[in-house]
Design a protein around this nucleic acid. Structure first.
Length: 109
DNA sequence: AAACTGACTAATA
DNA sequence: CTATTAGCCAGTT
């Protein structure tokens, strides 16, 4: 058994995000103990294989938008997944963080 | 070991 | 509102 990697922790936290809610990279990083490791969270999600069971689509950037990643395919896919969970996007492709942001304390983390 | 890179964020202009 | 700058941290080259 080797050292517990930070990614496992990140994946656990992302898996804890309730359906119909979202969390920002910074927020997940904070919960994982990586106070300024927002980029690490992004990397962890990038290397995440499809069908891993991790709701990676519930993680968005601080602007309440899908983070650009070079190819618009993933962005579109993420948006569809979120909409299928009840998340509503505004015209600018953004959503109301005030309404959909996951609150660990309130939701019972 | 040094430089580059990026699913980030906050502050400024 | 958008654009730019700087700070951040780990993985890659």
């Amino acid at each position: 058994m080797k050292t517990i990697e930070a990614y496992d922790l990140i994946y656990s936290i992302v898996s804890s995000i309730p359906r119909g809610r979202v969390a920002t990279y910074g927020q997940v990083a904070e919960l994982a103990g990586l106070s300024r490791g927002a980029r690490q969270v992004g990397f962890a999600l990038r290397v995440l294989p499809d069908g891993s069971g991790i709701p990676w689509h519930r993680v968005i950037n601080s602007r309440g938008e899908i983070s650009p990643r070079g190819e618009p395919e993933g962005e579109h896919e993420q948006r569809l997944l979120l909409e299928s969970e009840g998340i509503v996007f505004n015209e600018g492709g953004r959503l109301s963080l005030r309404q959909f942001r996951w609150d660990p304390e309130v939701d019972g983390y």
